[in-house]
């Protein structure tokens, strides 16, 4: 599996095909529509990151020293963002996740289209992923 930076670069290359915000939006919605839903049993309050305009449920599990993320949202656009983050972050070691800089979010020009509330939602999602990674790291230490 390629490293985080490589996956980020691939995403950036994909987005370079789009000139317009409209095309980026449509692509992210399509990614969101394709993201498999999270099983209802995992949609619990302790997995919920509540935002002003949308909520995210983030479930993490461990397999072979790697962390697998599954997530869902009531917003298809946020699901699209989740799909991108999962592509980058899921199946990684805790160290990789903790050290991920995630520069692709700025490079694909996504942050500029996010109002404060949504940008914060994405930020809390990333923070939660890293917290899970720290948790797993401590458990196995």
């Amino acid at each position: 599996m390629s490293d985080i930076q490589q996956v980020e670069n691939e995403i950036v290359e994909d987005f370079e095909l789009f000139e317009e915000w409209e095309e980026k939006y449509q692509y992210i919605i399509e990614l969101g529509q394709k993201l498999p839903p999270l099983a209802e049993e995992f949609k619990t309050d302790d997995r919920k990151i509540k935002g002003c305009q949308s909520s995210v449920w983030l479930h993490a599990s461990e397999s072979d020293g790697k962390i697998i993320f599954n997530a869902d949202s009531d917003s298809t656009f946020v699901k699209g963002e989740i799909a991108l983050l999962i592509q980058v972050m899921s199946g990684r070691t805790p160290e990789e996740i903790i050290n991920a800089e995630l520069g692709f979010i700025d490079r694909i020009g996504l942050r500029q289209h996010m109002a404060q509330t949504r940008a914060n939602g994405l930020a809390s999602m990333i923070k939660q992923m890293k917290l899970y990674a720290i948790g797993f790291q401590h458990k196995t230490a």
């Binding site: 317009e20 915000w21 409209e22 939006y25 449509q26 919605i29 002003c52 305009q53 949308s54 009531d74 917003s75 298809t76 656009f77 946020v78 289209h113 509330t117 949504r118």
Partner: peptide, 20 residues
């Protein structure tokens, strides 16, 4: 989701508010 729709409208140049 209201925000998804609001963002769609934004891509067309329409400014609305979504949420609470």
């Amino acid at each position: 989701n209201a925000m998804d729709a609001g963002m769609y409208l934004d891509t067309k140049g329409i400014a609305v508010r979504t949420g609470q």
